[in-house]
Nucleic acid binder design. Sequence first.
DNA 1: ACCTGAACACCGTTCAAGT
DNA 2: ACCTGAACACCGTTCAAGT
Lengths: 189, 189
Amino acid sequence: MVGARRNRRGRRRSLSEQEILGAAFDLLAERGADGVTLRGVAARVGIAPNAVYTYFPDKATIVRGLVELLLSKVDHGRFTDRTLPWRERIRAFALDLRAELLVHPGAVHLLLASSPTGPNAKTVGDTVLGILADAGLDPEDAARAAQLLNVHILGSVALEATDHQPIDPAQFLWGLDRLFDGLTTHTTT
Amino acid sequence: MVGARRNRRGRRRSLSEQEILGAAFDLLAERGADGVTLRGVAARVGIAPNAVYTYFPDKATIVRGLVELLLSKVDHGRFTDRTLPWRERIRAFALDLRAELLVHPGAVHLLLASSPTGPNAKTVGDTVLGILADAGLDPEDAARAAQLLNVHILGSVALEATDHQPIDPAQFLWGLDRLFDGLTTHTTT
DNA sequence: ACCTGAACACCGTTCAAGT
DNA sequence: ACCTGAACACCGTTCAAGT
């Protein structure tokens, strides 16, 4: 239903939105968040800077698409095994997302600034929500707990990524365990 | 010992670093983080853009100074009352810092991106550390807990501030309570 | 040492024009 | 509809020159 719109007249579309987002993703990987530039993306796909506006209304929309593309790299399938303890499942998910964000310098700031609402963001959120429901939290608590985990993951990565020091997951995992303890205490009382 | 350097020759200094940081702070309050611009600061204090380089080596240094100035607005004295329960003391501190960050759109992103190391940042950190020590945590755990609280406060504000929705402290406080529970569980086991 | 004017190498975005 | 060249209104930063 989306795309495949009849181009009744005029020149054929030489690119797709996905190719442009792909170029943005490459720039993110190669030059970091500050390197994701409208003009840079245009140059990489071989069109003039203003031609990008044929595909996206502004740069903010491109960044949201880029964040969506980034989130699609998280493999949700790995965390659906209900035979594993829920702590293990969340831990695996959190480490995976964290790793994905750490390889792209500044990417986490795009996340924190754009507060993604796309389908992939929803899928990621639903994955966490499902695990928390399996853990026995009622829907309201599960939603709050998911948000709390989100804050921990993004906040940790943002602070870790700016410290130029080597990145050690110990503090991250310690905090995650405190969160688990806090959630357990809350559900058992 | 700092400043009051003899100007042996040349024109008198027409400004102080503090006046420049003050102008940056005003711009932050009026136009948000994106409005904090080297040229804007220069215009506000009435000098040419490049004259700013006489006071600061680059914009990043100005931003660090601005973050320091922002942190100086947090009133640490209010949280030193040891007769109050430690949860109350941390809660008051966290709400205070959160409120300070929320009034300046985008300010939290400056914090997250600059990872402040100045004296005011240290004072803020020591305040939290002291409270956690009063709560009975050993120094290592207190340091980790302080970092965990830091992540929660900054991460929450960053996600809240980008959601354009009205800002509700309930989720923030719920998360804080889960952290307290998690820390309590950890110290009592 | 402090300040200026001019310039450089960028940005995101808009406009008029071509197909 | 898609694309281009030119321009606008910005950035941070550097350089040469004046006091």
